[in-house]
Structures are given as C-alpha cells and as structure tokens.
C-alpha cells in the first residue's frame, strides 16, 4: 500500500499503543495539537490522555521522565519536537540514558524510544534547521536510527520498541509528506543493516535520512551520462553497518558520502575513516564528502539551497572524482 512517511509513523505508533499496554507517548503538543508535524493526530482521541500525554515545555525533564518511566517498567515513546530543542535534553540523554546500564554495573536497562524531527530545507533559518544526528551517534550506550522511507519509518519504530536500550529516531522533516510502499502487515525492521537502494558499478554514494531522495536524484542524473552509481542508505548510524559499505567499495572502488551535517567532524568523516581503515586498498582515490557548508543556516532560499547538499553538488563531486582519479 502506498502511504506517506507521516502516516507510516502514525501507523506504527498506533499499532504499538494498541498491542502493548506499557507503551505511552509523551511530548510537547503530541495530544490535542496532534503533533507539530501532525504525526500523532487522532491518537489522543483513540487512546486517551493517560497514554498520549501533552507535556510542559521541559525537554530535559520529560526526556528524563521517559528514562525513569522506562526504568519503572514502561515503554515510553518520547517525542521531542525537533532536534534543535533536544539540546535542552542533552544532559538526560548523554549523562543518564546512555550511562545508566553501565554505571549500575548492568543492573538497569533503559528501554526508551525518543523520536525527533531533524534537518533543514524549509527556510527556518539558523535555530530550526540542525542535523545533529551525527553528534548523537558519537555516544556509546544509545542507538541512532535514521529512517529515510515510509516502510523504514514504520518498521524501525516497531523495532525500536523491542530494544532493551535507548533508541533515538531521527525523522527528517522534509520526508513527512513523501510517499512509498508500506506493508502494514510487515513486522519490525532489522536494526543495524544498511540497504542498497540502487545497485551500481562505478561509484558508491553513501547517505541516510533526508539526503536519500537527493542522492537518488543525483544517481538518476549520473545514469543519463552513463555513470552507474550505487546508492547505500545507512538506515542506522549506531550501530553502523560497515561490512555492507566495504563490500560495495570493493566493487566500485569509489565512495562519496552525502551527509546534511556540517562537514567538520561530521558523521561523513566517521564513515570516511572507516572506509579508509577497512577498504584502503580497494579505493582508486580519496573518499569524497558532500556535506553542509560551514555556516549557520541562512534564511533566504537561494542561500539555504547553497548551504545544503543538493543533487547538483553530488553530481559535481562525482565528476570531479572521476576526472582526478578516473
């Protein structure tokens, strides 16, 4: 069945609420408002205010309360409106969610799911356009998922709820209206496995989340010129499926990483390092990166477009790579 990314997340939320009494949803405006991105619309009416809980604007405390509720036997799904506001909850995430199992010598588990919208591209300027999932992926003790398709949006949320440890799901805000095939009877997705979204021979384009549609467009443009690009969707940043990446570059011998995070210390830098460590002798030239420009996000459309990875900049990077190391 064809459905939107937004509908797919909602279908997973409602399935989870229906099938497990321990599951509840909380966050800012998830109830009466229906979610800032309309993801939870209708859930309050269906499941009631005990299980769909509007919170005060207290990111640190409602994320921390999610951790505490998880310790107390519940399966909370916490929605942080966007990654930009998750910065107010970083203490709970980094110092508590990620550490409690370890600090307690293995006595505790924190089965918490936190969802948040991420990314730019909507002319929301410098405080509403961050792509910080790469930061989160730095932290041992949590998992970081970046579903890029409606099927994954649904399947990964269901999978996250089966995990005994904290899972952070980053939903790129531009993806909510996108459509794709979703099998409503499909169970949870497999976590920690990258997907080859488009097989190809000449170059591997590695991406995730909101950059997947752009990267697929770039691959289509390259195909017109006879350049056959393979597109890999990481799906999960932590754990990272390095073997799938290495297997691909063993065939294509070239890699370009597309990541909406800023280039400096980006997740792309980590992927690049892993390719170098594990696949150095398979590469015909240096790994290239297409990342966001080193600037807070500008408001003006043409400037924002220039700051973000785009199909044209991906194509240009592949051209340059082939010119120098073809």
């Amino acid at each position: 069945m064809k459905t939107t990314y937004r509908e797919a997340v909602r279908s997973a939320l409602s399935e989870a609420l229906r099938s497990d009494a321990r599951v509840f949803l909380m966050g800012e405006d998830v109830g009466r408002y229906g979610g800032a991105f309309a993801v939870s619309r209708g859930l309050l009416e269906e499941f009631g205010p005990e299980r769909v809980r509007d919170t005060p604007l207290s990111e640190s405390t409602f994320v921390g309360a999610g951790i505490g509720a998880a310790l107390g036997g519940m399966r909370p799904i916490v929605e942080v409106m966007t990654v930009n506001f998750s910065l107010l909850a970083l203490d709970q995430i980094v110092n508590n969610a990620a550490t409690l199992r370890h600090m307690s010598g293995g006595q505790l588990s924190v089965p918490l799911v936190v969802r948040m919208a991420t990314g730019g591209g909507r002319q929301l300027a410098a405080q509403h356009s961050h792509s910080l999932e790469g930061w989160y992926a730095h932290i041992p003790g949590i998992m970081v998922l970046t579903p890029a398709t409606p099927a994954d949006a649904r399947g990964m949320l269901l999978a996250a709820l089966r995990e005994p440890d904290p899972v952070f799901i980053f939903e790129h805000a531009t993806l909510y209206p996108t459509e794709g095939e979703v099998d409503e009877s499909a169970g949870p997705a497999e976590i920690g496995r990258a997907a080859v979204r488009r097989p190809g021979e000449h170059v591997t384009l590695i991406t995730y989340g909101g950059s997947l549609p752009k990267t697929l467009q770039a691959a289509d443009l390259l195909a017109v010129e006879g350049i056959d690009a393979e597109v890999i969707d990481l799906r999960s940043l932590r754990p990272l499926d390095t073997p799938t990446l290495l297997a691909s570059i063993a065939r294509t011998h070239r890699a370009v990483i597309v990541d909406e995070g800023w280039r400096m210390c980006s997740f792309a830098a980590e992927v690049s390092a892993q390719l170098m460590e594990g696949g150095f002798y398979d590469l015909d030239g240096p790994v290239a990166r297409v990342c966001s420009a080193e600037v807070p996000m500008p408001y003006a459309k043409h400037m924002e477009d220039a700051a973000l990875p785009q199909p044209a900049s991906i194509v240009a990077t592949v051209h340059e790579m082939l010119r120098r190391h073809g």
């Binding site: 640190s60 405390t61 409602f62 994320v63 921390g64 309360a65 999610g66 951790i67 505490g68 509720a69 998880a70 310790l71 107390g72 036997g73 519940m74 909370p76 203490d91 709970q92 110092n95 508590n96």
Partner: peptide, 13 residues
C-alpha cells in the same frame, strides 16, 4: 540530573 528520573519512576507507578 536525578530529578527527572524520579519523576519518571513515579509516572511509571
């Protein structure tokens, strides 16, 4: 940092 955790434990109860 422990205060929100306590709130969550009480919420679970």
């Amino acid at each position: 940092g422990g205060m929100p955790i306590a709130v969550g434990l009480a919420l679970a109860d």
